[in-house]
């Protein structure tokens, strides 16, 4: 199936694509200073059930810091984070090296945080297409395999909110498209809110309901089309970045080269 940009019909939305109603997690006027350096300034953000919000921004823009604030791992210097009561969170951090000194198979890795039967472990691994890995030691997994396993681990606690930090970092281009299709499917099936962090713009935007572009502060936000054509976005990522996004929408008409460039079978105006 293709990554398409579908608003769930039952969710009412404002013109910027924001759902109306209570958020799963929201940050209000968030500021973060670390070691005398201002990392984030006056950031407002909210993630609602059933939507995929993508956080984009250049390196050092504070994307991961913002996610860590929303997750409650660190405390903001100013502003506040509000989480829906009883909210369960699944978190896939940026690619990390698995310590081979800890003997740990995939099944056990999934149940570190929650207790679950083997059938439940199998079914969640099935969902991400990694059930054959259940008895493999995690230190032996490839980048793409490990990413899927981490996703399964985040899902096993039945989270209301998924936070995925650069989930496609260790994955090749084709694998990346697959992964985003998978994420879109998970959202559809589980109705959870998803906060996605990425700098791989062209693939991510297609799967998002709402894009927030940050660089220490919120530069622009809205539905993917409006962000892609926003002057702030062009300033941060270069003028051609928006074009690549537009092209991805009709990806049946073109092929991707190995370097990730897009070959088109038709003209653009």
């Amino acid at each position: 199936m293709s990554v398409s940009h579908i608003h769930s019909p039952e969710t009412e939305r404002t013109a910027q694509g924001k759902p109306v109603g209570a958020a799963l997690v929201s940050g209000h006027g968030l500021g973060l200073t670390f070691g005398g350096r201002q990392i984030l300034e006056n950031v407002d953000i909210a993630v609602h059930a059933g939507e995929i919000v993508t956080l984009i921004g250049p390196n050092g823009a504070g994307k991961t810091s913002l996610a860590r604030l929303l997750l409650g791992i660190i405390k903001p210097t100013s502003g506040e984070v509000i989480r829906a009561p009883g909210l369960r969170v699944g978190y896939v951090p940026q690619r990390f090296p698995v310590d081979p000194t800890i003997p740990l198979d995939v099944g056990r890795f999934l149940t570190l945080g929650v207790r679950a039967r083997r059938t439940a472990v199998k079914s969640v691994l099935q969902e991400v297409g990694a059930v054959h890995l259940i008895d493999q030691q995690i230190a032996t997994l490839s980048g793409g395999e490990f990413q899927r396993v981490c996703l399964a681990r985040a899902l096993i606690g039945m989270p209301g909110l998924l936070v995925l930090d650069e989930p496609a970092q260790a994955v090749d281009y084709a694998g990346e498209i697959h992964l985003y299709e998978l994420i879109a499917e998970i959202r559809k099936r589980r109705r959870c809110g998803i906060l996605l962090i990425s700098h791989n713009l062209h693939v991510v935007l297609g799967a998002s309901d709402r894009v927030i572009c940050i660089s220490g502060h919120v530069c622009c936000e809205g539905v993917p089309e409006s962000v892609a054509s926003h002057p702030e976005y062009a300033r941060l990522f270069g003028r051609d970045a928006g074009k690549a996004v537009a092209v991805y929408r009709h990806h049946h008409d073109h092929e991707h080269t190995l370097s990730g460039e897009v070959k088109c079978g038709h003209d653009h105006d």
């Binding site: 409650g72 791992i73 969170v89 698995v98 310590d99 800890i102 570190l112 945080g113 929650v114 606690g157």
Partner: peptide, 19 residues
């Protein structure tokens, strides 16, 4: 045992899950 193990694997992931 369980929280210690979760922290040993990945501290922030454990923290996000409430450890």
């Amino acid at each position: 045992w369980r929280p210690l193990l979760a922290i040993s694997v990945h501290e922030e992931m454990a923290a996000a899950e409430g450890v």
